[in-house]
């Protein structure tokens, strides 16, 4: 195992950040930690990299994390900012200079999509460009193990795809990557396995597709109607089942070719609706099923039923 943790616990005063987390990550694997803000993702990254002192056992490259060979590691902390009055090129060169061997700075900047901004001060870059520079500082030593704590937060969609491509390429070359995110589609697209963190506990772990198949439920249709109570009555009378969700009207177990039947049922009963949204279950559904929370695009946890 490249990374392993056994019964890792960490508290800050009364607040329990990690509550008995265990995981193993193989070489070349892309492992995603999913959860909303406060779930324990950053604390777990710190425990695995030796920048916090947890209870339990952690091994990184077969060593205590503080003894692991730093030449082989790359870390992008959450909310990390390098010196503001260095150019993008100088920032990457600075971090590259800390290692025995480093990649070409220009190539690294090109890899993260910063072809024209190398000579711009970090403080003058856009939010997305800043995050790309930070990602570049993590890649500049060509590490064997990468820890990326929310690497794409604040990056535009194209930039996000660029970073995904980079991570894919690194894993293809044999690197092991642990990435945290609250973007479910990112985890599904990128990760070989994911771990779902909630309240400091790892509530489920596995390949995204397997988790969705096991916990995500069936395809469903969300109905947007002015009078959703009436719509619910009509559909219930037609023996449709519903996904428990107080904020939305969601009909459970609707195959793609059955969407028309739902529409016809509503129309025949005179129920007006604005839209029918059919979707496959995804990791968001898995998280909801297992924790009773949704993650939300901002990473803010939301209990089902909250307005």
């Amino acid at each position: 195992m490249v990374i392993s943790a056994s019964d890792v616990r960490r508290s800050y005063g009364e607040t329990v950040a990690l509550d008995g987390v265990s995981l193993d990550i193989d070489a070349g694997e892309i492992y995603g930690l999913i959860g909303p803000n406060g779930a324990g993702k950053t604390t777990l990254v710190r425990a695995l990299t030796g920048t916090t002192d947890p209870e339990g056992e952690v091994r990184l490259l077969g060593e205590d994390p503080k003894r692991a060979d730093p030449q082989r590691l790359g870390l992008l902390p959450q909310e990390f900012s390098p010196p503001a009055r260095l150019t993008a090129r100088e920032v990457v060169s600075y971090y590259g200079g800390l290692y025995d061997e480093s990649r070409d700075v220009g190539e690294t900047l090109v890899d993260v999509g910063l072809t024209d901004s190398g000579n711009t001060y970090y403080e003058d870059l856009s939010g997305g460009q800043k995050r790309r520079v930070c990602v570049a500082t993590t890649l500049v030593n060509d590490p064997d193990v990468l820890f990326l704590d929310e690497p794409t937060t604040g990056i535009d969609p194209q930039g996000r795809r660029d970073v995904w491509g980079l991570i894919d390429a690194l894993a293809d070359a044999g690197a092991t990557v642990l990435v945290t995110t609250h973007y479910m589609e990112e985890a599904e697209r990128l990760c070989d396995r994911v771990g779902l963190l909630a309240g400091g506990r790892l509530v489920a772990e596995g390949p995204p597709a397997a988790l969705v198949a096991e916990h995500g439920g069936r395809p469903r249709v969300e109905i947007r109607a002015d009078d959703s109570d009436h719509a619910r009555e009509v559909l219930a009378a037609a023996d449709y089942a519903f996904v428990p969700d107080e904020r939305r009207l969601v009909v459970d177990d609707v195959a793609p070719d059955e969407v028309g039947d739902v529409a016809t049922t509503l129309t025949d009963a005179g129920v007006a609706y604005d839209g029918l949204l059919w979707r496959q279950p995804d990791l968001e559904e898995v998280y909801l099923q297992l924790t009773g929370q949704t993650v939300g695009a901002s990473g803010t946890p939301r209990e089902v039923g909250d307005e």
Binding site: R46, T49, G50, T51, P70, Q71, L73, G74, L75, L76, P77, Q78, E79, F80, S81, P82, Y95, L98, Y99, D100, T137, N141, F147
Partner: peptide, 12 residues
């Protein structure tokens, strides 16, 4: 700025 956190995983 979490720079020490990053530097802790470098050879510096």
């Amino acid at each position: 700025d979490n720079r020490f956190e990053k530097l802790a995983t470098t050879p510096l």
